[in-house]
Each structure stands twice: as C-alpha cells, then as structure tokens.
C-alpha cells in the first residue's frame, strides 16, 4: 500500500520537500514508516525523539496501524501564537 508522508517547518526546509509517497507493507504501523524515513534522512533521525505524528486530523502514536493512501504527518515541536 502507499502512504504519503508530510513535512512542515524546518523539516520541510531541510529536506527541501513538503511530502513524499512511500510503498509500505500491508499492516505497517507509524513506527515502521518512520524507521524507513529516518534511515534515509538524517534530518528526521536527528529530531525523531521530539516528533509527534498525525493521520488526517487526528494525532496518533507510533503503534498506529496505517491504511492505504493515508497521509502521515511528521510534526516537530510547535511554535504558533
């Protein structure tokens, strides 16, 4: 199945892209996808411990099981206001 990963703020700036589409195994959880991304992008590995995750309009944890065509957001600590 395919999942779209979305990046924001300094992750987006550092990686030079807003999103990427990856092929993952059926039954994959968020942690599997982040393992894959962190192995390819040092910028993600470096901030991994501070990330939160969201699918659609809900925050999810690393054990959340993904579905085909899900949009997984990797969120760095927020600074709005």
């Amino acid at each position: 199945m395919r999942v779209t990963i979305r990046y924001f703020s300094h992750l987006r700036s550092t990686l030079g892209c807003e999103s990427e589409s990856v092929e993952v195994a059926d039954g994959a959880i968020v942690r599997d996808v982040v393992d894959n991304v962190a192995a390819r992008h040092a910028a993600v590995a470096n901030v991994r411990s501070s990330l939160r995750y969201a699918v659609g309009t809900s925050f999810v944890d690393a054990a959340h099981e993904l579905s085909d065509l899900d949009e997984l957001a990797l969120l760095t600590p927020v600074s709005g206001g």
Binding site: F8, S9, A54, L75, T76, P77, V78, S79, G80
Partner: peptide, 19 residues
C-alpha cells in the same frame, strides 16, 4: 501544529524552537 520562522533585521532567518 503551527510553526513560525523569524526574519531578523540583518536578513537572517531562523525557525523558532518549539515545544
């Protein structure tokens, strides 16, 4: 999930550390 990047008078920019 909102983030801000600061632009300074000297032209430098920096993402504001979040929490």
């Amino acid at each position: 999930p909102i983030w801000k990047r600061e632009r300074f008078r000297d032209g430098a920019t920096s993402w504001v550390p979040g929490s």
